[in-house]
Design a protein around this nucleic acid. Structure first.
Length: 599
DNA sequence: ATGGTATGTCATTAC
DNA sequence: AAGTAATGACATACC
């Protein structure tokens, strides 16, 4: 046992080291689960041993608390368990050790808790007891009456808690190990909603009030080691017996999974749970059952991811905030970022959400677009971005899309944090690209919704002038709205015109390219025809020349001599007769036409 | 980093 | 003259 405790303690030190290192690595993008997982892998065998040990102890604890609870009855007003009078506790002596019941009876009134042994608290901060604090292995031991108090009662809040409980809660929060676990949960981007500490049973354990806080850090292991098992059991029994029924029932209804997890995996799996599993189970528990209650409590907002980061110490919130901002650079849609984190959490986190509720493009647009309409957009935006919206937790862009997605909204709010944290950017960028094209088409639509234009963009753009004017005349629109409607109509028509223009231009280009091709073909054909004609002409000339020479060679004068082709030429008159004409004496020959002998 | 492409928008002109 | 179409030019996002 001593060895185990020491090993456990060293393991916790490792965990703390990992915590520190991980915090340093936050900006490098290192995720906590990696370290936790490796750590768990290393300590897996040790954990198994501890689990077996723990299971045995828990079994005993259950038996005891069953008996203890049987001795308690619910105070309807305070919601606390109070010891039953001895006659009404028949199980008391049957199951519970006498010392336990005595201690319980003595310590249960808050005023008397100074009798609480130190080792009780020590067990409370030791991992096994911590797990039993959060888990509810004691649930089956609850009597039926206390197990089913009917509708869920509000969890203990600063408003509802008694001062003792509140103090106990604060001190509990300051427990080093608990803080470690809380830090893990808060620093882990996925482990958010399993933050049930305000509801934790031990919160209402007055014993914690008297826990010497400084000694916790120093002596937790020492006390652990020296604490007798019977005291541990006693403490556990008292703790569970102190649990108010509403808390128990909440735990029971909130996260039944924890029981199984606890038994199956042990406390390490609870404190370092599988992120997704933890996320989902926690969210269902809190948001499903307690949203309505918690949302009314300003100081206890829902532990949605962003809220947790807003609660987490140091740079955690800023880091997450910037991450969110970076992850959602284009929230034209107004969907992705706005639905998840802030629906029910007022205050800082909401402002953070609001600050990146508008997309860059939207802001740029508002800056870019001159004119009254756009300036009014800004006005509207600033007006819309008011506590009213903050209360509802939905920024303007979310509000704009809210109408489109009202049916999806509740589910999204539950699932999206897990999804957002669960996967990386790759799917998101895909969606973003899809949404981008879609959203760019509907930019004017969003503007119209921002200014509450009572027409659809489609109507504004496509209605004929008369219908459009009639439609406009039926509504009283202010200057900005009128300007926006005009701009929408102009832009819409111009957009179509540009599309048609480009289409025509392309068609013209294609037609001209076709013309060019056909003209090239024609040119080629004509060129080949020309060359063929030239060839034919040349051939005919050759034939004519041959024929001429042949005819000329047959001519003879009176003396029977042949004519020289260089001195004479053959010419054909219009009536078809052919004359032999001397080349040099052409004019002379003509003048002496009678001297020429017809052929 | 850079060039090409698609698209939206604005200014101007034509109808 | 007003409304609309056409189109060049520019900006932006995306590949």
């Amino acid at each position: 046992m001593m060895m185990e405790m020491e090993v456990m303690h060293s393991g916790q030190q490792d965990m703390e080291l990992i915590d520190i290192l991980w915090k340093q690595d936050i900006d490098l993008g290192a995720r906590r689960e990696v370290f936790d997982y490796n750590h768990r892998q290393k300590e897996h065998e040790l954990q198994r041993q501890r689990e077996l040990e723990e299971e045995k102890r828990l079994h005993l604890v259950r038996e005891q608390e069953k008996a203890l609870l049987a001795q308690l009855q619910l105070d309807e007003e305070t919601g606390e368990y109070i010891p039953r009078p001895p006659p009404s506790a028949p199980l008391q002596s049957a199951v519970t050790p006498l010392e336990v019941t005595q201690l319980l009876a003595e310590t249960f009134p808050v005023e008397e808790t100074e009798n609480t042994p130190v080792c009780l608290n020590t067990t409370a901060v030791s991992p096994p007891s911590s797990s039993s604090m959060i888990m509810s292995p004691e649930q089956p031991a609850l009597p039926p009456v206390t197990l089913s108090p009917g509708p869920l009662l509000p969890p203990p809040t600063p408003q509802t808690m008694s001062p003792e409980l509140e103090q106990a809660w604060m001190e509990l929060l300051s427990l080093p190990e608990l803080q470690q676990c809380l830090n893990m949960q808060m620093e882990d981007t996925l482990e958010t909603t399993t933050y049930p500490l305000p509801n934790s049973p031990e919160v209402q354990n007055p014993n914690f009030t008297f826990y010497p806080l400084p000694s916790v850090t120093e002596g937790e292991t020492n006390n652990l080691n020296v604490c007798p098992a019977e005291f541990i059991n006693t403490f556990d029994g008292s703790v569970t017996s102190m649990v108010s029924p509403d808390n128990l029932s909440q735990i029971d209804k909130k996260d039944p999974q924890i029981n199984t997890n606890f038994n199956a995996k042990g406390f390490c799996d609870i404190f370092y749970p599988d992120p997704l599993l933890e996320e989902n189970s926690g969210q269902h528990g809190i948001e499903g059952n307690e949203r309505s209650i918690m949302s009314d409590i300003p100081n206890k907002p829902l532990f949605t991811p962003v809220d947790l980061y807003s609660l987490s110490p140091g740079d955690t919130f800023d880091r997450e905030k910037t991450n969110l901002t970076a992850e959602l650079p284009d929230s034209d849609s107004g969907i992705s970022s706005n639905t998840s984190p802030n629906s029910s959490s007022p205050g800082k986190s909401v402002y953070g959400d609001g600050s990146f509720g508008y997309s860059d493009s939207d802001m740029e647009e508002m800056d870019q677009n001159p004119g009254s309409a756009e300036s009014d957009y800004s006005e509207m935006f600033s007006l819309n971005f008011q506590p009213d919206d903050l209360q509802s937790g939905i920024p303007v862009t979310a509000l704009m899309c809210q109408t489109q997605q009202q049916d999806k909204k509740p589910k999204q709010q539950k699932t999206e944090p897990a999804e957002e944290n669960g996967h990386n950017n790759a799917p998101f960028t895909k969606d973003k690209q899809k949404k981008r094209s879609d959203m760019r088409l509907s930019r004017d639509e969003q503007r119209a919704k921002t200014l509450k234009i009572p027409f659809t963009v489609d109507m504004i753009i496509n209605l004929p002038v008369d219908d459009f004017n009639e439609m406009m005349s039926k509504h009283q629109l202010n200057e900005a709205q009128l300007a926006l409607v005009r701009d929408i109509r102009r832009r819409g028509k111009n957009k179509v015109a540009a599309q048609n223009c480009r289409k025509r231009k392309m068609e013209n280009i294609v037609g001209l390219e076709g013309d060019l091709d056909s003209l090239k073909d024609e040119k080629e054909r004509l060129q080949s025809e020309k060359s063929q004609n030239i060839k034919n002409l040349k051939e005919m000339k050759q034939q004519l020349n041959s024929l001429y020479l042949e005819v000329f060679s047959l001519l003879r004068d009176e003396k029977g001599n042949s004519y020289s082709p260089s001195d004479y030429s053959l010419q054909q008159s219009s009536d078809g007769s052919v004359f032999l004409v001397p080349r040099i004496k052409k004019t002379f020959i003509k003048s002496e036409d009678n001297h020429i002998s017809p052929l």
